[in-house]
Amino acid sequence: MIRVALDAMGGDLGPRIAFDGAVNILSRHQDVVITIYYSPHSNLDLPAPHERLSLIVCSDVIDGDEEIVLSLFRRRNSTLYQSLNALAQKSSDVVVTLGNTGAMVALARHILGVLRPKLYPALIRELYSNPLRCLVDLGANVHCPPSMLVGFAELGAAYVEALSDEVPKVGLLNVGVESSKGSVVIRETDRLLSDRAWPPYLGYAEGTELFEGEKNVIVCDGMVGNAVLKASEGLLSFLMGKLKGLDGTLSLFETFYQTERRHGACLVGVRGNLVKGHGCSDLAAMIGAIEYGIDIARADLYSAIETRLCNSAL
């Protein structure tokens, strides 16, 4: 059985989409059990009883705009803390949340621990699933020295190896491919990656290489990655809106948007499997985030990444 811990309180639309998403998933996956962590409020209709669905009431919720302060680590009865603690206690195989990204990263490091000292966890988003290509990082880390970016390259390469038959080919996002381009941090990261046998490094990548090209692991700091991702998603939504109603013209965009089953991002570098969905996720995106969590739990992703990182150090 794949055991999913679902934090129902992080999304903008409230716990209803978590309840409905869980029921949908259970109807299609007979080997999945789901535990939902939620905080009750008025007019909340709970899902019908199900033998593979458990509901855990929590008295605290970490809001999306809360800052990361020391008191966060003492809020043990928040839905996010409880779901991560279940993962740490091995009573679940994956956590799915739509909640506060900063709080999730901080609590995951605190409760689960990191895979390797001085290796910072990173958020990975699949830009395309067949063939697999991904972007690292999306906002878990904003100020990144070269050593941290090298760690992102390792995590991204291990992710590709764990979830596909593709050979990872790392590119470092930059303003150009010429050796003179980029900040001091980017140029030093380029030097460090060029001196390594693993992961395979192909040099700088420009923005035009995000969705196609030979490089399938694009590395950047979290601020750049988050801006790039949201700009891409915004452009897709804009084009779909403009082309809506034009016969046949929208089919390509609809196909790209609807056939990508996985939604959200995966936090890698900690001792557990985590999926972070958009705070504004609707029901379809909630279902996609849970599907993503099931996929990485089946692959035992964090263990596979840990093993690959250990082997690369030999």
Rank of each mutant, 00 (worst) to 15 (best):
D300N: 08
G99A: 10
R109Q: 09
L163T: 10
G207H: 07
L243N: 10
D221R: 02
P121I: 03
R261G: 12
V136G: 02
G11R: 03
D65N: 07
C144F: 00
I305S: 12
H263T: 12
V170S: 03
G156Q: 05
P47Y: 02
A122F: 03
C266R: 14
A48M: 15
R116F: 04
M223V: 03
T307R: 12
E66R: 11
L115Q: 11
L127G: 01
F211A: 05
V61R: 04
Y302P: 11
S78A: 14
L115C: 01
I36N: 03
Y37P: 15
A106N: 03
L70M: 13
A8H: 15
I56K: 03
M104V: 12
I17N: 13
D247A: 07
G64I: 09
G277F: 08
Q82V: 15
G64D: 06
S237R: 01
D190P: 00
I287N: 01
C58P: 10
T79M: 02
D247L: 08
A289W: 15
N43R: 00
R271E: 05
N311P: 11
A205H: 01
A140E: 01
G277Q: 13
F152L: 01
L155M: 04
P15H: 05
C144N: 07
A162I: 04
R125D: 10
K242L: 05
V96E: 00
S303G: 07
H110C: 05
R261Y: 14
L87P: 10
G10Q: 06
C220D: 00
L274W: 13
V105Q: 01
E161K: 04
K181G: 12
F253R: 03
A289K: 13
D195H: 06
